[in-house]
Design a binder for these strands. Sequence first.
DNA 1: GTCTATAAAGAGATAGAC
DNA 2: GTCTATCTCTTTATAGAC
Lengths: 191, 191
Amino acid sequence: AALKVFSRAGYEGATVDALAEAAGMSKPNLLYYFSSKDALYRAALDSLMVDWLEPLGAIDPEGDPLQEIGGYVARKLEMTAASPEASRVFATEIIRGAPVLGEMLAGPLRALVEEKSAVISGWAAEGRIACEAPQHLIFAIWATTQHYADFDAQVQAILGPDGAAQRYDDAGRMLAGLFLRGLTPQSAGVS
Amino acid sequence: AALKVFSRAGYEGATVDALAEAAGMSKPNLLYYFSSKDALYRAALDSLMVDWLEPLGAIDPEGDPLQEIGGYVARKLEMTAASPEASRVFATEIIRGAPVLGEMLAGPLRALVEEKSAVISGWAAEGRIACEAPQHLIFAIWATTQHYADFDAQVQAILGPDGAAQRYDDAGRMLAGLFLRGLTPQSAGVS
DNA sequence: GTCTATAAAGAGATAGAC
DNA sequence: GTCTATCTCTTTATAGAC
């Protein structure tokens, strides 16, 4: 429940009162379970990061490059659609300069990105994918998928009610095509 | 100067004291020029939005499709590199639900996106570009370019000092290639 | 475990001298 | 135009009854 409040109001904007109401209890009662607002914020971030790293880890070095990347994009977009609040809380944390997650980013996340970047570079060396900067490809995937949660207000305002209703379907098709064509090596013909 | 404070602390996290210090004056003096913190925030957003809409408007219907899109991506990335604070303030405003910019998004911005989407759809109908959902292509361009400002803390943590130093160069090459190949029609051979 | 009441600190904004 | 001092309200967190 805290994610919902933090995701709209940000850390400073979220009052303990609002957090308690969202959890269906009184303010002192919430502080009975979490010693401080900061502790609650950290707990919310922790629970969020568990699912966060998983899809990237699922990329299979033995699989087909374009299918693996395409599958990753699709899973990321599904996760974003399923819990946009988590994406927004993560986004505000990073925009703030990652005061809480900083070490996690520079440690485990960096290591995971390095590992998968090496896999993509290997595919590229074999001519099975067109990509010289795999880290930046991963950034592009994160950016395009999370955009639909983080900037939802803008997306809905621009698409209007009709387009917004099918925004995740349209986005999925658009991104699948863009990344498929964008990563297909030009010299090799791929059926 | 206000952009710098708002971009890291967000609206609620930015204190008038901090805003005043960044502007090099005392708190009451700042409130002499801007009647309230909210007024200052709106003024900062206003000054920011002037440059915001301009690059998209510069897309030329008479130009070469792939060059026009490529140029737009490059300009957007340059703008992001030049003023990451502006991008972050815009991002937090949207994440908050666009309480101030809401009408601007649904009005002028939506109209501009519709106009340029029609141009891209026209190119697609002529077989000069591969794109069925032009609004979502524009979203993808916004997302990938602004990512380097909004998520700078994450980008730097993952790339490390060496990779971070050239992040905008690498991103520019990566995105140019991705969008060029991703938008090139498959049936037509393009030199 | 859950509440009412309240302490203690910090915020935005104003008063009024210079 | 710029400052010091301060008012007032909100916020986090705690005390202590039940």
